[in-house]
Design a protein around this nucleic acid. Structure first.
Lengths: 198, 198
DNA sequence: ATTATCTATAGATCTATAGATAATGC
DNA sequence: ATTATCTATAGATCTATAGATAATGC
């Protein structure tokens, strides 16, 4: 698979778009700002992506590719441990986290072109998370929750922690906090305190 | 305390601003859109709030007032049950939730005028939540968490659920999901299964 | 005097289209 | 032929300032 000149240019442009969205959101991102970052005129940029929305679509498509990891997840064998390391990885790239946190926030406004993408995506992610939880903890989690009921909470914690962390990285240790949430999902110890062994 | 004509007008304007921000975010909200909604010219609007940012500041100040509830919270006697009913209340007013979810999302972008507000606010909210958790469950929560470590998770769940719910209200029962999270915080049953009583 | 509005407008942007020019690929 | 760029520009906005006019409150 040859990556032609044009393909490279597109990749550059998408990278620049991610940056500009991180800084200003999608509505606040201007074509000129993206163009300037990649060394093109605004009209040169439109040669590669004919409208601003086409740029956003490309950004979202790329995100989908990461998430499916080029097939890594296709075998369904994600483990909860991998999730924890994903959070650690994210904590090292605030730019990308900021891009998608800004987009998620914007997406709830009316007529936002990313709204449908996120809606679909969350449906799918909740279902994936439920499968991971089931594989790890079985049918019954603490609090009597099923994997399906715990899944939206897991997703909410991931997103919610990102906002707190982006706003105040020194006060919020995102990976540690996510680990704390996983501790809540752990089955309670078989009351060793009552064990006369000690 | 007399609410003069002018005060009323300001209240109307703030209400209209909340609506427009819910629909388009802060950066996407135009003064004309707000003005039109309240039946003024754009320049008439600027008579009451001299800049767009002044409008945002007024919106955020109002939010602060709700949250402190005119003193309701000043006695520190919030209970976790009240939190649950706040979530239920929020589920009945998607407009407001949308306004502040959109603002939170935008606030992580660079130079956003609400950024400092949210940063401060989350610091304060985490501390309030820790106090509530301590009052309710004492020093040691499931998973061995302290109230201070559980607090950011509680806040994350609240925010994260709002996004999932706004995007897909039919698929996400926000109050029920929050109740599920509270179940995770409940101390585990004193293993009745081992109890020979049954 | 102050308050509530308005018209007019400056000065910046923004997205997108039209049409030209040069280089590259069959 | 197609691809990569550019200049020029139309047509919409947007925020904010200047300055006028009418009504209200001491």
């Amino acid at each position: 698979m040859v990556r032609g000149r044009s393909t490279e240019r597109r990749a550059e442009i998408i990278r620049a778009t991610l940056e500009v969205i991180a800084e200003r959101g999608y509505r606040g991102a201007s074509l000129s700002a993206v163009a300037e970052r990649v060394g093109l005129s605004q009209q040169g940029l439109l040669h590669y992506f004919p409208t601003k929305e086409a740029l956003l679509v490309a950004v979202l498509a790329e995100r989908d590719q990461w998430d499916t990891g080029g097939g890594t997840r296709s075998d369904g064998a994600w483990r909860i441990e991998l999730l924890a390391s994903l959070v650690e990885y994210n904590a090292m790239r605030p730019g990308i986290v900021q891009t998608f946190s800004a987009l998620l926030g914007e997406s709830v406004t009316e007529g936002h072109p990313a709204r449908e993408f996120f809606t679909r995506r969350y449906t799918q992610v909740r279902s994936t998370m439920a499968a991971i939880l089931r594989a790890e903890y079985g049918e019954r989690l603490p609090g009597g929750l099923s994997p399906e009921r715990a899944a939206p909470l897991l997703v909410a914690v991931l997103d919610g922690l990102q906002y707190q962390w982006l706003l105040d990285p020194d006060s919020v240790d995102m990976p540690a906090a996510f680990g704390d949430f996983l501790a809540l999902l752990q089955p309670p110890e078989q009351s060793t305190a009552k064990n006369p062994q000690s």
